[in-house]
């Protein structure tokens, strides 16, 4: 239904309202017109919700996304307007808030060792083979994620679940890209080891060097 409201408001814009601003413009405008910030919410809240729901589940995700935008609004004065894309900034705030729940996050992954994941039955028939493999590796994967140090897990999941580039992860966490690479490398090595390293060639060879 958020989509409905969003779509509705989007239609309203088509009808002649102010056109689409860039993220940085919106943040800049929000100093004079605080409600401009709500447009940033419309743009990114669904994406952030999906990300947090993966890490902490839907119950926590909703409130955490709301919290994220409140924090972001409070800190908008510090936003570097040279960055047109606000995603890394928002993901950085999300990551800090997720860290408060690190125990429940680990527990969530560990729970996957036992219970099957919902939605498997909805897979199309031609994906069944893949599902068999996936459900076989899931307990191992979940165990590995639960066991990762938080910093490494943050980097791994920002790449895998947040779809951020290495540079964007660096911006989000305030660390150099080299550190992003080394943390990601370490995390992926552990995950592969947990999966039994069945195919040592499957990873990115440059990272293995």
């Amino acid at each position: 239904m958020v989509a409905a409201v969003t779509a509705f408001l989007a239609n309203a814009r088509v009808a002649g309202a102010p056109s689409v601003y860039g993220d940085a413009e919106l943040i800049s405008r929000s100093h004079a017109d605080p409600e401009a910030f709500a447009e940033l919410f419309d743009r990114y809240a669904p994406m952030l919700y999906r990300y947090v729901s993966r890490r902490l589940g839907p119950e926590v995700a909703e409130d955490l996304v709301g919290e994220t935008f409140l924090v972001a609004f409070g800190k908008r004065g510090k936003y570097d307007l040279a960055h047109p894309d606000a995603r890394p900034w928002l993901f950085g705030i999300v990551t800090k808030l997720v860290a408060r729940h690190h125990r429940s996050e680990a527990a969530r992954y560990r729970a996957l060792r036992r219970s099957p994941v919902d939605g498997a039955v909805e897979s199309p028939a031609d994906a069944v083979a893949a599902m068999v493999t996936a459900s076989a590796v899931r307990p191992l994967l979940a165990e590995a994620l639960a066991a990762l140090p938080r910093r490494d897990r943050d980097v791994l999941l920002l790449v895998a679940w947040g779809d951020l580039s290495y540079e964007e992860v660096g911006q989000a966490l305030g660390i150099p890209v080299g550190t992003v690479r080394s943390r990601l490398h370490r995390a992926r090595r552990k995950v592969r080891a947990a999966l039994g390293d069945t195919n040592p060639l499957s990873g990115d060879p440059r990272e293995e060097a």
Binding site: A45, R54, R55, G57
Partner: peptide, 9 residues
């Protein structure tokens, strides 16, 4: 795994 764990807003 993320696709399976995630929820729509």
């Amino acid at each position: 795994l993320g696709d399976d764990l995630g929820h729509e807003p």
